[in-house]
């Protein structure tokens, strides 16, 4: 089961950049509106750094915008971002209420309506050795959210457990930036809505979204389509969040991102014991690499994970390289016992 290219069926919405326009300062708005629409459709990020040229990341490359409009690959002659631009953009994204975003500033990012992310840098204000908030903002990175519906269509059929009328315990793993979270989000949507073509009726999904990446919540409300039977705990630490969902929302499946710490694995164990299925993502390029990390080794030794999905970029971001079942583990060369 290898080598499914995933980039085909789903495309990111071309008009996503329009969501971001209302948050820009008038002068930036004018400049960006002057960029050819064909480029804007591929807009990935807008970088604002104080007293540095405005930079747009499009189609995997960096562009600078000239003062009169028009794109440039070299920074000379580019529009220089002024303090006033940054101030206005920050005020707009915070709804003129920096004071209401203490938690977000501590984490260093804000989620906008539409699920777009704004990363911030500036001077950190410390209290008791921990970051309390940021001030004197100097840099902003507005990342356009790329919700790609349909990329899980070809994976979901390998994950359905018809005997239990549920999904298998699944681990999605890959090196960074191979589309784990994007695939996970689309899986959540499919599992939650149900897949009529596969005779799968849809189950209640609980999502612990510690970094607001799966559902892209803005003020607690998911901005991306995560399905009708999905409950999202936004910004909650994974281990605590899984317990809260388990007790409070009686989910059939619990989904979370970036498992790695021992406490996460312990919480997962509780979830297994409650008979709830689990789909998680993990950083790592091979099963052997996962086994080398003590917490994950423990997880694999429980021998309860039934499906492993390895993503890669061999045919573009989000290519499914391999789908293994739990029984394949010894054959895949993973030593399951420590002795």
């Amino acid at each position: 089961m290898g080598g499914l290219p995933l980039t085909g069926p789903g495309e990111a919405p071309a008009g996503a950049w329009r969501d971001i326009m209302p948050f820009l300062s008038p002068s930036l708005k004018e400049l960006i509106a002057g960029v050819p629409p064909g480029y804007l459709a591929q807009l990935e990020e807008i970088r604002l750094r104080r007293d540095k040229p405005l930079m747009l990341g499009m189609a995997g490359r960096d562009f600078f915008v000239r003062k009169g409009g028009g794109l440039e690959t070299r920074p000379e002659g580019g529009y220089i971002v002024e303090a006033g631009d940054l101030e206005k953009v920050i005020q707009n994204i915070s709804g003129h209420s920096i004071y209401a975003l203490e938690e977000e500033l501590r984490n260093g990012y804000i989620t906008l309506p539409g699920g777009h992310r704004v990363g911030l840098t500036g001077k950190a204000v410390l209290a008791g050795g921990r970051v309390k908030t940021l001030k004197h903002f100097s840099g902003l990175n507005i990342r356009v959210c790329r919700e790609i519906k349909g990329i899980a269509d070809r994976v979901i059929k390998h994950l359905i457990d018809y005997k239990a009328d549920n999904v298998y315990h699944t681990v999605i793993f890959s090196p960074p930036r191979c589309g784990k979270t994007t695939l996970l989000r689309d899986l959540v949507r499919l599992i939650s809505n149900g897949v009529p073509g596969l005779n799968f009726p849809g189950r209640t999904v609980g999502v612990v979204d510690e970094r607001s990446e799966i559902a892209g919540c803005h003020r607690g409300v998911p901005q991306m389509d995560v399905g009708v039977r999905t409950d999202v705990l936004d910004g909650c630490p994974k281990a605590q969040g899984m317990m809260m969902l388990l007790r409070a929302m009686s989910p059939d499946i619990i989904v979370t991102d970036e498992i790695g710490k021992m406490e996460d694995v312990q919480a997962l164990e509780e979830v297994f014991n409650a008979g709830v299925r689990v789909i998680v993502t993990i950083h790592g390029s091979s099963l052997q690499e996962l086994v080398n990390r003590p917490a994950l080794k423990y997880l694999l030794q429980l021998n309860i994970i039934q499906r492993f999905v390895l993503l890669g970029r061999s045919r573009g971001v989000g290519t499914v390289e391999k789908i293994l079942s739990g029984n394949d583990l010894p054959r895949a060369g993973v030593k399951m016992c420590s002795n």
Binding site: E87, Q91, S94, H96, I98, Y99, E102
Partner: peptide
């Protein structure tokens, strides 16, 4: 100063 700093400061 309205809106541009943390709660204590506001």
């Amino acid at each position: 100063n309205i809106g541009i700093s943390d709660r204590d400061d506001q």
